[in-house]
Every structure is written in structure tokens, then in C-alpha cells.
Simulated assay, not measured.
Amino acid sequence: MTGTVFFVGAGPGDPQLLTLKGRDLIARAGAILFAGSLVSEAATQWAPADCEIADSKDMTLQQIVEWLITRAQKNETVIRLQTGDPGLYGALIEMVQPLDAANIPVSVVPGVTSAMASMAAACESLTLPEVTQTVIFTRVEGRTPMPEGESLAELAAHHSTICMYLSITLLKTIRKELLIAGWSDQSPILVVQKASWPNEEKIVRGTLADIRERCLEEGITAQAMIVASPTLGARHWSELKKSKLYDASFTHRFRKASTEEKQP
């Protein structure tokens, strides 16, 4: 009888943003393999004293899988601790397939992704009524090609919120593609490096025209989320469309519409 390998989302950086389920699994783990290039070792602080903890930053996929299989043969609970959410740019299926082939039980625990943490750090909203109700998670084509129909220019043509992962070194390309899609050089851009990481988070605001220069001035060259959105800066708008959900004239299953809103 083998143990179970749990793919646990470590969240964006702050260990306090681990889910309770993830933390509880860490607390009973016999072995933990964490992605040290992206996950703080502080996320393992709840592990038992005798838990085997290893860093995978210099491992290949095959070595990672072999480590997980070997430990699952000796421990009831084995954890692969991954940055953000395991299912988003996490090579999840590439690791699960050989575990399936080895008859190792697998379970996935979701985590907070850096797009959410970045917008929270900046006190911004991904969506706004009558501005955009759509959020796109993507990356810019570099050494890894993008599927047909998913170029940044094609996605940006929707003029919705775009959260760009793994792309901070490609800001020139981002500007070019967004301009092709009809965005203005004055469009607001948000960059957050190491969102939620204690004492390491950096927030940079700019426009499509100057965000690259601003990031270079701050020394931001890795581990950064880029957000282009028509919602950015809404906190300071003089006029804002309100959500229908809380409109006194709007009926839903928990409240009937009223013609006059009662004063508090």
C-alpha cells in the first residue's frame, strides 16, 4: 500500500495565504518537495520535525517524479508544494501521468494565484460593472510557443483584464502587441513583483509607454505579474457604475426590490 501524493498550492508567497487544508496536510506530511525557485521555504514551517524536506529547483521532471514515487512508497502523505495554484503553469499533468502509471494515488489542493495577490496588493479589482466582466490569464510567447489563436494581440482585442505570467522580460513585446490590439500608449499597467512576499513585494504603476523603464529602474526582472486592465485606477474615478446585486431596485432570491432605499 502506497501513500498519496498531494499537489498543494503554496499560494503567491506569504505562508499565511496557504489554505487551511494545505497547511493541515503539511503538518502531517512524511515528505515534502517544494519548488524553491518560486516557493518560500517558510511554507514548510508546519511540517513535523522528522519530515523529509527537499528543494526541487535543480531537478528535472524525471527526477521530481522519481522522488515523489520513492517517498510515496515509504510515507502515507507526500506533498509536492507548488507556487500559486498547481493547475496554472504548474506542469501538473506532466507529473500526474507517471504517478498514475505507478499506481500512486494523487490529490490536488488549490492555491491562491499571483494574479489575485497582485491585484489585492494594489487594491484593484479584476472586474467592474459595465467596464469588463472578463479576466484572461496568459503568458507572452517566448521560447515556448503559444497555441494558434492565443497571441497576445488576439487576446488583448477583447479589451478586458489581462494577467500576464512569466513575461516580465518581454515588456517590449507586450507594448507592441497591445498597440496592435488597439490599446493606447496611455493605458494603465500594473506590475507586482513577489506579491504578498513579506518585505519583498514591489508594486509599480505606469502606462503602456513607460512601464518597462519603470520596472528597470526598480530592478524588476523576474517573479512579477503584469496586469493590463480598463479597471486599473478605478478607486480614484469620480463616477463608477454600481453593481446591480446591491441595487435597491434589483430583485434577487434573497431580497425583493424596493422603490425607495431605506436610510440607515
Rank of each mutant, 00 (worst) to 15 (best):
T2H: 06
V5W: 09
F7S: 08
F7R: 11
V8A: 08
A10M: 03
G11M: 11
P12W: 03
P15F: 10
L17E: 06
G22H: 13
D24S: 15
R28L: 04
G30D: 00
G30I: 11
I32L: 06
F34T: 05
F34I: 06
V39H: 07
A43G: 09
A43F: 02
T44S: 05
Q45P: 02
W46I: 01
A49F: 11
D50L: 01
I53T: 01
I53D: 12
K57R: 15
K57H: 08
D58W: 01
M59V: 01
Q62V: 05
Q63G: 05
I64D: 07
W67Q: 09
L68K: 09
T70H: 14
A72R: 12
I79G: 03
I79N: 02
R80H: 04
Q82L: 13
P86H: 09
L88R: 04
M95G: 13
V96Q: 15
Q97S: 09
Q97R: 15
L99R: 02
D100N: 14
A101C: 05
A101D: 12
P105V: 07
V108Q: 08
V112T: 12
V112S: 06
V112M: 13
A115S: 15
A117C: 08
A120P: 14
A122I: 04
C123Y: 14
S125A: 05
T127P: 00
P129M: 07
E130H: 15
V131G: 02
T132R: 11
T132H: 11
I136C: 13
F137D: 01
T138I: 01
T138R: 02
V140F: 06
T144K: 14
T144S: 14
T144Y: 11
G149R: 04
G149L: 02
S151Y: 05
A153E: 15
H158Y: 08
S160I: 07
S160P: 00
T161Q: 00
I168E: 01
I168W: 03
T169D: 14
R175T: 10
K176Y: 09
L179M: 03
L179S: 10
I180P: 05
G182K: 04
G182A: 03
I189E: 00
L190Q: 06
V191L: 01
Q193G: 05
P198F: 13
V204P: 02
G206A: 04
T207S: 15
T207G: 15
A209Y: 12
E213C: 03
E213L: 01
T221N: 08
Q223K: 15
A224F: 05
I226D: 08
S229M: 12
S229K: 01
T231V: 14
W237R: 10
E239C: 07
L240F: 05
L240W: 08
L245V: 12
L245K: 07
F250P: 02
T251H: 10
R255H: 08
S258Y: 07
T259K: 13
E260Q: 13
K262D: 14
Q263G: 00
